[in-house]
Structures are given as C-alpha cells and as structure tokens.
C-alpha cells in the first residue's frame, strides 16, 4: 500500500459518500445516471467475487464491502425509494449501456491473464469500469445546469483512477516484484482519459466560480 493507492481509494470512497449524501439528504437523484450506477454495481459484483475466498487484507475486504453495499443501495434508492425515484429523469438517461456490457465480456474472454471464471470476470470488471461513466457524461451534457454535488461526484470518481495510475507508476519503480499489468494499466488510462474534457470544464467552473455547464 502506498500513499497514491490510499489517496485513490479515499477519493473513490468520497465520490460514493457524496452521491449517497446527495440522494439521502435532499432525496433527489436529479442529474445522476441510473445506467452508470447499474454498470458500477456490475463492476463491483464481477470484481469482488473473491471477497470471501481470497482474503488479502482487512482494509481490502472492508473497502470491497463498502463499495458493494453503497453501489447496491444507490440502485435501491434510485429504483425503489418512493421519493428519490421520482427525481430520476429516465427520458434523459437514454445511453444504451447494454451495448457496453457485451463487448466488455467478449473482450474479457479474448484478452485476459488467465482463462478461469474468476479471472475472466475480474477482467470484465476492469474493461466495464473503463466505460461505465459514459452514460453519466452523456447525461451531464444533456442536463443544462449540473448541481455541485453531481459535479463533485463525477470529479472524484474520475480522479480516483487517475491516482491509481500514479500508484501503478510508483509500484513499478519501487517494488521489484511488481510485474506488468497491461490490462489494468491500459483500461485505467482510457478510463481516466474519458474524463479529460469534464475535468477541464469542471476545474474552470470551480476556478471562475460559475455553474458547471458542459458544451452540448
């Protein structure tokens, strides 16, 4: 564990807490893509299959439980909660995210580190996470005014994998036994690059203290 990895995990945790805070306190999920939330729940379900079979550290296990629990409770809020679900704008959240799942699964079957069920599912989760934010980014461009909490949520979600990239660079030079992880590295890089224009507009909106508006 290094500071970049810890910062990445804390940033990821913050993004989830910001989203839960928004949904739980103001009972609204306006501007949040349910499809991205569904994709993320699938990412965690596929990635943490080994949560009960492969104990690595208490920290990892606790964090996996938090990410699994929060992502599924966000789904519950957005689909079942009588007040919250009314604020979900399904007419705007139209990205056909099913078209993301199958290609990622096929790619995981073709390109993986070991052809076992758990390893293919883990690889699938890596590919899927790289594109999971797309429905949310498309929704942001459609909804004119992005509220602060939604903007912070997306920013933190994008930043966490960026910090992981620094963690991988650090580990590559600092840990002699750390081997290459091309699948994780390339997917993580593509994932972070997808946020590039969002980061640009978000940082400008914070700097100029104006509402975040992505160009149509």
């Amino acid at each position: 564990m290094n500071i970049f990895r810890l910062a990445g995990d804390m940033t990821h945790l913050m993004s989830v807490l910001v989203l839960l805070l928004k949904i739980h306190t103001i009972k609204s999920c306006a501007g949040i893509s349910l499809k991205t939330q569904e994709l993320y729940a699938l990412v965690f379900a596929a990635r943490y299959l080994d949560i009960f079979t492969h104990y690595y550290s208490l920290y990892n296990t606790v964090m996996k439980l938090i990410f699994l629990g929060s992502s599924f409770s966000i789904l519950w809020y957005m689909k079942r909660h009588k007040v919250v679900r009314r604020s979900y704008d399904k007419d705007q959240d139209t990205f056909r995210h099913h078209f993301l799942v199958l290609p990622c699964l096929v790619l995981a079957l073709l390109i993986n580190e070991k052809f076992t069920f758990k390893e293919v599912m883990w690889t699938f989760s890596i590919y899927l996470e790289a594109v999971a934010i797309l429905p949310q980014l498309v929704l942001l461009q459609r909804t004119r005014n992005v509220d602060n909490l939604t903007g912070q949520y997306v920013f933190l979600l994008g930043a966490y994998r960026g910090l992981y990239i620094i963690n991988w660079i650090y580990r590559y030079f600092a840990e002699p036994t750390y081997s290459t992880h091309w699948i994780t590295w390339i997917s993580g890089l593509l994932q972070t690059l997808l946020y590039a224009d969002f980061f640009y507009y978000y940082i400008n909106s914070v700097k100029n203290n104006v509402r975040l508006q992505l160009p149509a």
Partner: peptide, 10 residues
C-alpha cells in the same frame, strides 16, 4: 500465476 493471484487492489 503470481500476478493473477495478486489482485491486491480495489
């Protein structure tokens, strides 16, 4: 195989 087992990140 060590790297497969070592999915030590989240």
């Amino acid at each position: 195989d060590s790297k497969v087992e070592k999915h030590d990140e989240l």
